[in-house]
Simulated scan of single mutants.
Amino acid sequence: LQTMRATQGALIVSSSIQIILGYSQLWAICSRFFSPLGMVPVVSLVGLGLFERGFPVVASCVEIGLPMLIIFVVLSQYLKHVHVRHVPILERFSLLVCIALLWVYAHILTASGAYHHTALHTQISCRTDRSNLISSALWISIPYPLQWGAPTFNADHAFGMMAAVMVSLIESTGAFKAAARLASATPPPAYVLSRGIGWQGNRYPTGWAIWHCDWLYRFC
């Protein structure tokens, strides 16, 4: 619970950067100087930073992780021009299609008994009936203020989250332009991008306001 409370506090502080840059139109000025040559390395470095966390998980179940990577690359890069009723389904929803296909594939392996004589670690990583994700999930879960207690504010957590926010600003800007391209729409103007960044930062301060009003109600 302490980790969740610290994360909430860091998100509240770091999201203020998004609000200031977004609604003050400072990000609109900055985004005019962005180009694919500068944005792609930043986003790529973020992905490479997750390399040491992602690939060990893939290696824990190679028979599912490796086909997932191969199918995703094939669908998103080589079959992206395949259209269904003039809609580029594979280009827009390649990840969702891969997840659905691999879940069916993993369930077939589990039902066919492919993991009956494997190690326990392999069964936990590969079988679809060992994680209990579906059986343990709630049908309806409604978040509420102070679910994990009052958020805590620490400088080290806040600065770490602010660094991540700065990278996500560039990534979100590229995502907005990519979404417009995939939707065959005109690229969003700079002021629209800036407002979108501001709206992204609205989530956690709004949650903080709810938390603050709840405490005022309790003590007054």
Results as ranks from 00 to 15, higher is better:
W208S: 15
A100C: 08
R127L: 02
S135Q: 08
H107T: 14
S194Q: 06
N202P: 02
K177V: 11
V40K: 09
G160K: 00
Q25M: 10
G160V: 00
L11V: 06
A158N: 03
L45R: 02
A28W: 01
R203T: 12
E63M: 11
F153G: 02
A137L: 10
F72G: 00
F55E: 05
W199E: 12
T152A: 06
L1Q: 10
L50Y: 05
W215M: 13
A164E: 06
G196Y: 05
A178P: 02
V58G: 02
P36D: 03
L120V: 12
R130D: 11
I70P: 02
W211D: 15
W139D: 15
A163T: 10
Q8D: 06
V97I: 13
G49M: 02
T206R: 12
S125W: 03
L193I: 15
C30M: 13
L146E: 01
A178Y: 01
I134V: 14
G113K: 04
G9N: 01
G196T: 09
S14K: 04
L216M: 12
R92S: 09
S184Q: 12
V57D: 15
M4A: 13
V167K: 01
I108V: 15
P205T: 09
A209K: 08
M166E: 14
S35M: 01
Q18R: 08
L193D: 12
L11H: 01
Q8W: 01
L37M: 11
K177P: 04
V82M: 09
